[in-house]
Amino acid sequence: MSIFRKWVLAIGLFVAIVVDGVCSFYLHQFMDYGSFGAASLILPISVMLIGLFDDTNENEIWLALGTGIVADIYFYGFIGVYAVFLPLSCWICQKIARFLPEIFWARLIVVLLGTTIFVAYSWLIFNMIGIATTSIHGLLMSLLVNQGWTAGFFVCLYWIWGNLAQDYPFLIDLNAYRV
């Protein structure tokens, strides 16, 4: 059971990849406003929340890298979107968490900023390699739509990842420290 406890966070992130894809499929028609749309950002929000809740465990940066590679290969077939953003955001969130007030609103602001950077970064990569060609106007409108959906996803995920990251840190068995 101790091995299972160490890997709970990894299993949770695997489920987050799956749920991200399924939600994107079912919610896609509701996330579009005219020719602009929001992305399903469950995975980036989850990794940022892990970084914000558990700022001491460096293993989670490697976990974010692994999750990013799997997500990139599954969703796009190439590596460079999630595999770069997830470990970087986890590392930055862990650094920020050391001086950030441990309250809901402060974390929400960080996540809103993070998802904005993620959407802009993925737009840059897609345009650079020619996977998608979208104007800056399209990007800016999508960013606005994304803010609303990010806040919604954040509310749904906050307590889930808060509990998981604090009770089951990656590759650490907290029971070993309890008497």
Partner: peptide
């Protein structure tokens, strides 16, 4: 059957 979709709005990829 379609089981998932790429989370972004631009790439238009289904699985």
């Amino acid at each position: 059957s379609v089981i998932s979709r790429a989370p972004d709005t631009w790439s238009d990829l289904l699985t």
